[in-house]
Write a protein that binds this DNA or RNA. Structure first.
Lengths: 143, 143
DNA sequence: AGATATTAGTTTGATTTGTAACTAACAACG
DNA sequence: CGTTGTTAGTTACAAATCAAACTAATATCT
């Protein structure tokens, strides 16, 4: 028989998913409405903007995204003229992805929006809570 | 210009999503392979198993799921013979959903699996971290 | 060199999700 | 009553995701 002391709200994958969804809604609305971007597109843009030009493969590894997802996000960002590709001379399979000037502007705007949005979310937490939360999330992600 | 002190790993929606995904994989594998269930199906099953018979609407509210998602999960669970519907006499629009004996067995198994899985995840955290993590997730979900 | 294996990235088709329109039962108002 | 509005749940179509097969370039092995 089940003992009934274990609640859904205490099940980590469930609680994390609920919190992740709730916390994403506001920011998602911003980049969707303002730039017509999807979540993966935003992530790819952010990686390039924050960490500089790199290949699709590198983005896959950094962001733990599947290559088909990245491939499609790159296409979409290219169409929006936020991103440019350049084939590498020394290995023509690989292409270096980088943001266009326009892409950098979008990144800068989203960067500020993300920072402000994060601050708003964190306002409900004490500094200690915020720090421990971060640490826990890192640990769980690494597992 | 952006100041570059704000990292993706510190952006709450991103960090939460990464942790949520990483933490879900193992358990997802279990209910997928063993029972061919989808995430929403598992959630609906869990709600009925843990909190007793209720309407689809009630599940929507409790789990913050859209009614079409619940509708489809209920159909799937019904086909698997894990769940039965019964139209309410006093209002024939509503139907009470409840688990069949087989559904209860599946629930009991998943309940134990979830509990064990959660314990494994939590093993990397101190009791204090675990407590604060829970509190933070609740706060964020409520916003 | 020539066959075979890897690797970076794309395309395709099947599942899954999201959005909006729909049906059927009930409620409220004249 | 009958018209209009609301509610519970389903269906249909579009958008997004996933897995697997594919292309083209490079590496390896004989």
């Amino acid at each position: 028989m089940t003992d009934n002391d274990f609640d859904l709200g205490r099940f980590l994958p469930y609680a994390l998913n609920q919190a992740a969804e709730a916390s994403s809604i506001g920011f998602q609305k911003y980049y969707r409405q303002r730039y017509g971007m999807l979540r993966t597109e935003w992530r790819v843009l952010f990686h390039l903007g924050r960490y500089g030009a790199m290949t699709a493969k590198a983005i896959c590894a950094r962001a733990s995204l599947h290559k088909t997802k990245v491939s499609r996000a790159v296409q979409a960002l290219e169409q929006k003229r936020y991103l440019a590709r350049s084939v590498q001379e020394e290995d023509r399979r690989r292409e270096t992805l980088s943001l266009t000037r326009q892409g950098q502007e979008v990144y800068a705007d989203l960067y500020e929006a993300a920072k402000a949005y994060d601050a708003k979310l964190s306002a409900h937490l004490t500094p200690q809570e915020r720090e421990i939360l971060n640490r826990c999330l890192q640990k769980i992600t690494k597992v």
